[in-house]
């Protein structure tokens, strides 16, 4: 095995393969920005998409169509909070503004900051929904024991596909990323 020619060839394969490995590792990370671009360009989805103010509704409130909007809330196990909607569901008409009040309460012993993530089902309703006020737009800081009432104002436009009659709004409160500081505030989920 002292054939210098063979050693050179083996070294060449090794270099080539290590370069491919590095490229594949970089590719894994490149998927992160590429993911949003791909979703938008290929499928026309923006994961965080909501309708702009300018959409539809020129004809005013649509009187002959009623939509049921249900509310679902949950809290990340890392956040000792509660989030309740004043009503479990509301009936609205397309282009009719509606307001629902949510109450967030910090049951923990420390002041904590959370941020609510909003999703709507079915997904194709997302671009027909416009929110003029929502606690999910900003971070919320609550002291220990503090409660806050927060209104959500929204309009669903008249371009909503005809087969959609029922929408679910879901809010999930997550701690604002301070992972190491969080550990003292709550008991570890494994225990």
């Amino acid at each position: 095995m002292t054939n210098p020619n063979l050693q050179q060839r083996n070294a060449r394969v090794l270099r080539w393969a290590l370069a491919a490995t590095a490229a594949a590792f970089a590719f894994g990370f490149a998927l992160a920005p590429f993911y949003d671009v791909l979703c938008e360009k290929v499928f026309g989805i923006r994961p965080t998409q909501t309708a702009s103010e300018a959409t539809a509704c020129a004809g005013g409130v649509v009187q002959d169509r009623e939509l049921l909007v249900e509310f679902d809330t949950s809290i990340s196990p890392e956040l000792p909070w509660r989030l309740d909607a004043a009503k479990k569901s509301v009936k609205v008409r397309p282009c009719e503004p509606a307001t629902v009040t949510f109450t967030a309460t910090n049951d923990g012993r420390l002041t904590l900051t959370g941020r609510a993530i909003f999703t709507v089902a079915p997904a194709e309703a997302a671009i027909h929904l416009s929110k003029t006020e929502c606690f999910c737009f900003t971070e919320q800081e609550l002291e220990a024991g503090q409660s806050r009432e927060m209104p959500v104002r929204f309009v669903i436009d008249d371009q909503l596909p005809a087969d959609v009659s029922r929408l679910t709004f879901r809010y999930v409160f997550n701690p604002v990323a301070k992972p190491l500081a969080m550990t003292s505030a709550v008991s570890p989920p494994n225990s």
Partner: peptide, 30 residues
């Protein structure tokens, strides 16, 4: 060679999400 590094990348992102405050997979940070 093509896919083990991709797994390594994915779990590295999990690691930084959990311990270093990145938000590759957390909706709170986009």
């Amino acid at each position: 060679i093509a896919v083990m590094p991709v797994l390594a990348g994915a779990v590295t992102m999990l690691l930084t999400d959990k311990f270093f405050g990145t938000t590759f997979f957390s909706a709170t940070g986009g």
